[in-house]
Design a protein around this nucleic acid. Structure first.
Lengths: 195, 195
DNA sequence: ATGGGCATGTAACGAGTTACATGATTTT
DNA sequence: AAAATCATGTAACTCGTTACATGCCCAT
């Protein structure tokens, strides 16, 4: 879970939050939650409560500064801005921290792997649902990409979006091929062996 | 971390271990660790200590049976076999449990996303390392695939391997394109904006 | 007046990891 | 004689989640 990290160093999630602040805006935890949602296409999005916790930690380290805006009858609104120290720390992480290998948890592929135990038609159903969801995700990603495509500050996020679009398009093709291969199987030998 | 699950239900990891036993062999925790390694191409591989813990839990539920083989001067060797109840539970999970959306944590893409803060050349370096590692992983996957390709019991794992090969090949292409786009950027505007 | 968005926060928990410890057997 | 492999296990820890709780403001 926490790999390759020198003691006292922060997890990638903390730097992801810090990085979202490195674009320069002053943001609330709520805002950050929204921004973090855009990471879901290639990284994952931390839970709301986790973001708040991460902000407290970053603040304790002096990586972000907090400004309070009093609100009547409920907790103050907290606005965060990255500090000079925070920016230095972020750049050091970006430039020097070892890049963890990408981790994929592909539940649909896991189901296929164990297909020998599945009910007839189940594997196909799982793959088709996966295809549908991938199509949706790709559509959403295209929308996000369109919104940021011409904004100079988002040149790099745009590159990631392009990459993601290719990624999901390839996934769609690969699923289709798997579906086809599955159909072949059912034609020749009947269902593959149940062991 | 633990999503969509009815209370009392087990995490996907537990079912993955159970699934590895569903091929019918009697295996030790150590063996299972090896087998679980093959899941790393599309799912992740749990730590050794985690596998042992999972086996204890599966045993407590009656999903696996344990046979002890006494060894002189150290803990007994424990051999596990799936039970009828375990097989039923596994099939129910496979056929009925909601399939979690695939989760990707792509650390290299995260670095690219924040490229505006990176030192010159760093993003390229990260991508090139990612490409190298992906090539390695693909090579390993091809080897595994070759070993199982003609084994009837592994028809489904073979399909997953094919899928994986396409997946990693597509990733390689996508990274290359990103590298190219990056080079274009550096030609026209100089480095993209540092904000 | 009701629902959705804004906004923060706590408590309890489960998942999964690293690091360590031990020792026999087999291979080099 | 050393190193790798086989084999099990514990303890301390972090990460991240779900579920809950609160309450304002704005649009319908």
């Amino acid at each position: 879970m926490h790999a390759d990290r020198a003691p006292g160093d922060l997890p990638a999630t903390a730097y992801a939050v810090l990085g979202l602040l490195s674009f320069g805006d002053e943001l609330t935890g709520y805002d950050l939650r929204q921004r973090a949602l855009n990471l879901r296409f290639f990284y994952w999005s931390p839970a709301q409560s986790h973001i708040y916790a991460e902000l407290r930690r970053l603040r304790a380290r002096g990586f972000v500064a907090e400004r309070l805006e009093p609100l009547a009858g409920r907790p103050d609104k907290r606005l965060y801005r990255i500090t000079g120290e925070g920016l230095r720390a972020f750049r050091t992480w970006l430039d020097e921290a070892p890049v963890e290998p990408p981790s994929l948890k592909h539940a649909a592929a896991l189901r296929l792997f164990f297909g020998h135990q599945a009910a007839p038609g189940r594997v196909r159903q799982v793959l088709e649902e996966h295809r549908r969801r991938t199509e949706e995700l790709l559509a959403e990603l295209r929308q996000v990409h369109e919104r940021i495509a011409e904004v100079p500050a988002f040149a790099y996020p745009s590159l990631v979006a392009e990459w993601g679009e290719r990624y999901y398009a390839a996934e769609l093709e690969a699923v289709q091929r798997t579906l086809d291969r599955l159909a072949e199987h059912e034609c020749d030998g009947g269902a593959p062996p149940t062991v």
